[in-house]
Write a protein that binds this DNA or RNA. Sequence first.
DNA 1: TTGACAACATACCGAGGAGTATGTTTCATT
DNA 2: AATGAAACATACTCCTCGGTATGTTGTCAA
Lengths: 212, 212
Amino acid sequence: MSLGAKTAKPRILDAAATAFATHGVDQTSIDDIARALGATKGKIYHHFGSKGELVCAIRKHSVQLTTDRVRPYFEAQNPPPEKFHAMAQAHVIAMISELAYHRVVVEEMRGSGTGRITDSERQLRVEITTLQSEYEDMFRNVLAKGISSGAFQDQDLSVTVRSFLMMLHAPIYWYKPRGPENCQTIANHLANMALGAVLVTDSKTCTVTHGD
Amino acid sequence: MSLGAKTAKPRILDAAATAFATHGVDQTSIDDIARALGATKGKIYHHFGSKGELVCAIRKHSVQLTTDRVRPYFEAQNPPPEKFHAMAQAHVIAMISELAYHRVVVEEMRGSGTGRITDSERQLRVEITTLQSEYEDMFRNVLAKGISSGAFQDQDLSVTVRSFLMMLHAPIYWYKPRGPENCQTIANHLANMALGAVLVTDSKTCTVTHGD
DNA sequence: TTGACAACATACCGAGGAGTATGTTTCATT
DNA sequence: AATGAAACATACTCCTCGGTATGTTGTCAA
């Protein structure tokens, strides 16, 4: 496969991701995607078994893209705060850079998609779950190190990871490209917030409101 | 309208919110909701003009519920950090307490729902947007005060608000009721993270990665 | 008692869309 | 040239689901 000239499959993925991200998965028909490609359903169903498989392929690609951008900073030898900040920043840049793909993932975060799923789709779902776990483990690892060193707050890891990752996903909903330096600014802004969210603070303002 | 005994309309809203939150809006048919109510479509379409109106009613109710829980802490006379923490905590408790309603809102955050929308739905959409803006303005206000007093970081307000609100929405995706004290713990955890995200930090670790 | 209207249930329509079956073209292989 | 398979296009099928039109029951006022 030569670089530069995309083959049919990635082109389909791009068109599907864009359409899904714009109008939502359920509101986008296979014919819509085909039309965007200047083709027909036949092309899509020749490369993908079902609509669900198409969505899964997009999700998998999203996770891989994000992992590729973040892992280098995870493997670098830095103290937890610096490492965490760099990873968070890379995550945001990933979100912004391939917005369509990641938007589909977030939309599908609630769980089940279509009712009936094929076998190969089931297979893909497992792979995706594994990849996502491995990705989150990188952040879990950094946080654990930071807690041990006393730099980070000692609170439930699962809750912490899922929470600030959610915050780093935020640009998906409102980002509009306005120049390259804007991207860096936002990424740094969010990375700072994420770091502040996990760092230990001197002011212990832990007031508790009444229950429900 | 007597308290305690719910009339038909709120009961429909509850059933719809639960179904929408569980299987997604598009994957839930009106017949599904009617079945959950032990009734038929006729009942639902007698009280709501369309599926879109039903979704809008849920969204509006969600915003109102959240506002009702947060506003008291906004109107209290406290310094920005304490006030912010209390508001954030109330927000999380709201998310957890009426999970189904808020989950629907987050799912619809991408924008347009069904293609065709009625007039009364258009009306509802405007009201919802207004209510949401007013809600966000409370946080915007506290943040502005905190920035002036030097307690909070001076960064883009819109980005900041949307980002930590996103983080406070996180429980929607993974919260499973395990007791009342658990709810308080999570709310306090997230409120602490949100506060840390906006407070000024002594360590200025603003490393910048390479662009794209 | 009788209208009249609210509050539903029942039966039906029509559009849209996922998936399929089959035809057609291109291209490498022998 | 003949063959076969990959890579599509075309033309269907079938079913779900939103919406509607109409029938039925209870209730309340005059």
